[in-house]
Design a protein around this nucleic acid. Structure first.
Lengths: 355, 355
DNA sequence: TATTAGCACTCTATGCCTCTGAGTGCTAAA
DNA sequence: TTTAGCACTCAGAGGCATAGAGTGCTAATA
């Protein structure tokens, strides 16, 4: 945006005052900070309004930043907010204390951010895994019962108990092991076709649907390895903010945020940036068109990303929120990175010999 | 409650009118239905107010049922509401369509009730399992990697991948299998003591902590087999009801409902009844003292129960909600009963050969 | 004796009015 | 180019009268 330096300073002052007070900002309120008379600022304000960066709720009120105004602020005027030692200490503390199980990492991380920011936070996974099968094992429990164990590319292990009334013997189990380990390893979910399964059934001489059951389980295991999950935390805190004092407005946005399938469509930061800020109408979803979203991503192993999104009014402390989010995303990256690929997601707490 | 028949009819009329309209009920509004003049009803109303069954927002307003009034209504006056064929059809339809995976049964059931009732609904598990271990299996992946598979009493199977930098050989795996299968089967989580683990370490000649890792996993598997879970659905719909138009009030109750640990403390129906109704101050939690909860339970196998709780203002259509809840709880019981003990909770979708 | 019609009374909600004050835009002076 | 000054605008608060719903009480009625 090509505007004079003084206009920028004024815009910044207005944004920051408004973010703090939630009251339209008058010319007097900021003139002392800028060393200019209120009249001068009034003139500049009029021009900023003409440029579409400020808005006036009514003639005799102060100015409020428009979405465009916030965008200019975020892109050009926002001071980098680095967290204080005290703040990083607290954040780290909370992280270590509350994120213990990888199982619930997504939900826990969301809750943590919600507690720190006092805004609703969604946490979700994005991206597909292209996960592959590494090996099959079969455990014969008794003549009707078989446990299938599948180990995936990223060291996840999944199992399933199957009952076969027709009965199974050791020989069949060995044959299954050979056929599945030679025919199915290295395959993705989509590569396990009906033809392949039929071929294996012939190879095993299986007429009881055993092969089909095992193959079905393998597909399910692959699909579940990188499930799309979504959690919402701190929903109630939306009501703290004056923008959402109107119950209808609050209800609309809460209903939107409670719908997992809608959350799934929310955007992730681009490859380059670590935090993405969407202001008001920049949100595709109509329900968010007068709210803002600050979203950060971190790797969950494979092609899977974790997303943490803070939702609030456009009058948000963008600097503060994005500082917290990007710090936390970085910490999560380290936290997860230390374990190499994602270990054992969904199968118990880390043992003493896991890094 | 020992009151005249006519008073009961009047109380019922007031409750039902108020539940529908959310407006204080005047004597004129119900006199035609009861074939009495408004003056007579006014006299009765005054007495019902003296008895504490009705309240008056202010002198020149109609009457509103008190918590005590609702209690009398629920205990003595409420007509049994049986769902119409149309309604059971729709409910069944929704049930079959939306509850497919046992994994997410709890959450799905909650969401379903929330959609039908337009109130927030919590779904949670209650009770402990006393689950035991049935057998151990060990799969040696390579010389540093071992998969432990544990089968529990209720046919659940859990696994974990362990890395041991020091290396493992076939002989050790066989020894582990013998020791664990003889020493640990039939034990509950609490019975796996430090002494037992030490004894096994000696028996296996293990100095690398392998035994400890496996035992730790076994404990975790037992504890996780019947986890306490909680889900909240339809939170946003609380704002639809005039009682919660005040954002502060709405926020308080939403914050309460969003706290899983607080939900866990909510009561379950007694052994006898299938639906329990808690009206206003009957709720122990202060946050719920001007709200009501209707809660139903259904068996989840073992000693574990599933709870479905509908939360709303005391001005609730108790007959309708409890009819829906008890019907649904019954259906879930059938749905789950068909599968005997809870099969495979948390380990993949049902295969074609599971009953 | 139980019920009802009638009436005075109470109290909230609504609309209307005025007043206040914050903030503006414009003009003229510095 | 900046600033002081001034007239103007408009939302919001407070005061006031009014309408209307509903009550409690009394006296008449069945």
């Amino acid at each position: 945006m090509d505007i004079s330096d003084r206009k920028k300073r004024i815009l910044r002052a207005i944004v920051e005052s408004y973010v703090e007070s939630a009251e339209p900002v008058g010319s007097k309120a900021i003139c002392s900070d800028l060393g200019l008379s209120s009249a001068t600022i009034r003139n500049e304000m009029a021009e900023l309004t003409a440029l579409g960066l400020l808005e006036q709720p009514h003639t005799s009120a102060g100015r409020v930043p428009s979405s465009k105004g916030y965008r200019v602020y975020v892109n050009e005027l926002m001071h980098d907010r680095t967290l204080s030692a005290q703040e990083t200490f607290e954040l780290n503390n909370a992280l270590r204390q509350r994120i213990t199980k990888l199982d619930s990492l997504l939900a826990d991380a969301g809750r943590l951010v919600a507690d720190f920011t006092h805004y609703p936070v969604y946490a979700l996974t994005a991206g597909s895994s292209g996960m592959k099968i590494r090996r099959f094992d079969f455990i014969l429990v008794d003549k009707n019962t078989l446990i299938v164990v599948v180990m995936l590319d990223n060291d996840q292990v999944k199992n399933k108990l199957l009952h076969f009334p027709a009965g199974i013997d050791e020989a069949l189990v060995r044959k299954l092991s050979t056929v599945f380990n030679s025919g199915f390893t290295g395959l993705e979910s989509s590569e396990i076709t009906h033809e392949l399964v039929s071929a294996c059934e012939t190879a095993c001489g299986d007429t009881e649907g055993i092969v089909a059951s095992v193959a079905g389980f393998a597909i399910a295991a692959l699909d579940e390895a990188a499930p799309r999950q979504a959690y919402l935390s701190g929903a109630a805190s939306i009501l703290e903010h004056p923008e959402y004092r109107d119950p209808d407005k609050a209800q609309r946005i809460l209903a939107y945020l409670s719908d997992d399938s809608k959350l799934m469509t929310l955007p992730a930061p681009d490859e380059s940036g670590e935090v993405k800020i969407l202001i008001g109408p920049e949100n595709v979803a109509e329900e968010l068109s007068d709210s803002s979203v600050v979203v950060a991503s971190y790797d969950l192993g494979g092609d899977v990303k974790g997303l943490l999104g803070v939702v609030g009014p456009t009058r948000m402390d963008y600097a503060n929120i994005s500082a917290h989010l990007s710090y936390l995303a970085r910490e999560l990256r380290i936290f997860l990175g230390g374990a190499g690929t994602l270990p054992q997601l969904g199968s118990g707490p880390p043992g003493p010999d896991e890094k």
